[in-house]
């Protein structure tokens, strides 16, 4: 595999605030890499350093195995936080300007405008666009140079549900072309749907990184309900039970290693209880995210 990005001991301090602290990370070609973390955990600061607008306090990073240069940035499409354009220029003119900066032909413009469905409004001034249209223009601009790497920081901010689904489709489509995508987002559902790998930042420290497929492995949770009064005690007598919680009127049984929903079901049956509700739950990324964050100190 080709390493697209290698971050080594990267730090950024703003006075006393350690926005990013000794970050080590590699992103391989073709990965869709999700960067997660609560507000202020250093996602944007990290991406800002990768794109040359924030000077690192310490450490370094390599794009495609090389020290970063402006020319490397031209091959990367990036939207950090908010869409940024000249408000008095039309969408079209803004893209023409960006094409000049990225040194790519202006012929690419109609294609990307089409992709984000802005062709109709391209001659209107940017400042007259709605937030969602601004986001779309930013994505169009990031795709202008047919980049091999795409960096998106909250790309679905302010979009309507349809827009979110569309952007997700665009991201998937781009990923299907073998492009590498780095995505910072608060929408964990989104990340689970589109990402192959993810990392979690907390107060500038990386507290987890791994493939998305690993989420849900590990301890199982089974949701149970039955018309029995002392169900709680009965569930606790099952040797595979690690803990029992009552949530929204159903019992959440966390299983010990090696035990599964099927075994619990036959145990209940043997105890003469017929479950009215029994679901084995795969852990969501959201749940895992919250767990990791509360574990990390």
């Amino acid at each position: 595999m080709n390493t697209v990005l290698a971050i080594q001991d990267l730090s950024k301090h703003f006075g006393k605030i350690r926005a990013v602290n000794n970050l080590n990370l590699t992103v391989e070609a073709g990965q869709v890499f999700g960067m997660l973390g609560p507000n202020g955990s250093g996602k944007t600061t990290t991406l800002g350093m990768l794109m040359g607008v924030t000077n690192p306090t310490a450490g370094k990073f390599l794009w495609f195995g090389e020290e970063p240069t402006p020319n490397v940035r031209r091959k990367i499409g990036a939207v950090l936080e908010h869409p940024i354009f000249y408000p008095y220029l039309s969408g079209q003119k803004n893209l023409e300007l960006n094409a000049m900066i990225k040194e790519c032909p202006a012929e690419n413009i109609p294609r990307v405008l089409d992709l984000v469905e802005l062709t109709e409004r391209k001659d209107d001034k940017y400042k007259t666009y709605s937030l969602g249209m601004k986001q779309r223009l930013a994505i169009a601009s990031a795709l202008l140079n047919d980049p091999t790497v795409l960096i998106l920081d909250e790309p679905t901010n302010g979009l309507d549900p349809m827009g979110i689904a569309e952007i997700r489709e665009i991201i998937k489509k781009i990923a299907a072309h073998g492009k590498t995508i780095i995505l910072a987002s608060h929408l964990l559902d989104e990340v689970q749907k589109v990402c192959t790998h993810f990392a979690i930042l907390k107060k500038g420290n990386m507290v987890y990184s791994g493939p998305v497929d690993d989420v849900g492995k590990g301890l199982e949770t089974v949701e149970v309900n039955a018309d029995v009064e002392n169900l709680n005690e009965i569930l606790l007598t099952f040797p595979g039970t690690s803990s029992v919680n009552l949530e929204n009127g159903v019992y959440q049984v966390t299983m010990r290693e090696g035990y599964h929903g099927k075994a619990l079901n036959s145990f209940l049956f043997e105890s003469g209880i017929v479950a009215s509700h029994l679901v084995t739950k795969k852990k969501s990324l959201e749940k895992q995210f919250l767990e990791i964050l509360s574990d990390a100190r």
Partner: peptide, 17 residues
């Protein structure tokens, strides 16, 4: 004010350019 200087650098200009 528009922060376009930031975007110009992100898009590939060097600060010197």
């Amino acid at each position: 004010a528009y922060r376009t200087i930031r975007q110009n650098i992100i898009d590939g200009l060097s600060r010197k350019e």
